[in-house]
Nucleic acid binder design. Structure first.
Lengths: 211, 211
DNA sequence: TAGATTGTTAATCGATTAACAATC
DNA sequence: TAGATTGTTAATCGATTAACAATC
């Protein structure tokens, strides 16, 4: 029997790998495959089969010796584990290039991220729309989010504005913040913050390149 | 004496933290600070002082008991370690929202990423410019990069086009690829690939939010 | 001086990998 | 059946943290 997914702390690196597994599974699915083994997935992502097997086991997925995993079932379990089987309603603040990129990013095809409201402070873009969402003024955030509260906030404003935006979002009921501004937010206990630092991948790249 | 930075394998997590250290140092610098301790930096980033101290030690930085580190010197050493003391000339392929975001991202203020050439396949944007760079046609990539070779390639095209773009870049002399397309690239040994997966941070966020 | 902080070695913690019995 | 693959326990590896002597 698979390890129980509940009550067991799943390592952060495992969670980070799950979206890639989902993408590979979806591709296999489109090829008409019915069963998939850890080896198949590992090969596709340059990982070791044992690692994939362990990760699957931690999410509660169960396979069958010799056959592998039932593809549809496995994908469903991974999506459930990630809570990507339900829409994740979110508000995005900062409709610049990065915000626009997130609104249209194809890599999110399966994560059910539903960006419901978009705010920006630039009067020139307020009122226009991106991917069918009308951009509201940041000054209307209190009004709008009070009427229509959202649990997740995405911050794509310049660093200087990020802390204030975060404070206001938290005051308006946002419980988790995905922050793309290169600044560490100071927020109350219990608020979940995922800090995205695009520089860190580039750091790795330059260090590897010159060694 | 500090551990020698050369000959010692610096852990990947350490390298990933360095850009944040640089940003904090720059902020301190602008406040006019002359000396900085590991404790100061740790506090700013919610890390433990011992971790900052260890990281600094790995980069070869040397401090003084009681005083801490000489701010300017420390920043210079970190930037040197990252090779961010010299311009990193790069080519970007895919001038969509994500590509545009990277061209203008303020979080890169210090990393000396110099995007020299920008290519896109959309005839409507070819010839126009973004942040002062003229967008060239992807079909002109061979001509352009043969005349003006670049060591780093940034891929911000849709997943379906990424592998072909990567192959062509490698054939044109690119030795390191920063890939934002949600697909694992298959490239020859020795080519450095940094895979950026925006979904993995979101996975962490949703799992934490619902537990 | 006393206290704060460094740098290094050792201990701990956590993730990856190996080993292997179970089994379709 | 034989072989491939699972799931779990144990071993290994690597990163973080603790301890502490050195010192400005």
């Amino acid at each position: 029997m698979a390890e129980q997914a509940k009550n067991i702390k799943v390592p952060e690196p495992t969670i980070r790998r799950l979206p890639a597994y989902c993408r590979v599974l979806k591709a296999f699915q489109q090829q008409g495959m019915e069963w998939v083994s850890a080896t198949d997935i590992a090969q596709e992502l340059d990982l070791k089969p044992i690692q994939v097997r362990k990760d699957m086991s931690l999410t509660g997925a169960e396979g069958r010796p010799k056959r592998g995993f039932l593809l549809n079932e496995l994908l469903e379990i991974l999506l459930q584990f990630l809570h990507w089987d339900e829409n994740q309603r979110a508000v995005l603040v900062g409709a610049g290039a990065l915000g626009t990129a997130l609104l249209g990013y194809s890599g999110f095809a399966m994560n059910r991220l539903e960006i419901v409201s978009v705010f920006d402070s630039n009067p020139e873009v307020v009122g226009s729309s991106i991917y069918n969402r009308t951009i509201e003024a940041v000054s209307d955030m209190e009004d709008s989010l009070t009427k229509n509260p959202l649990p997740v906030g995405i911050i794509t404003v310049p660093a200087a504005a990020a802390q204030e935006v975060a404070d206001r979002l938290v005051a308006l009921g946002v419980r988790a913040i995905w922050n793309f501004a290169p600044i560490k937010l100071k927020l109350p206990e219990g608020i979940i913050v995922e800090q995205e630092d695009l520089s860190s991948g580039f750091a790795l790249l330059t260090v590897k390149l010159h060694s």
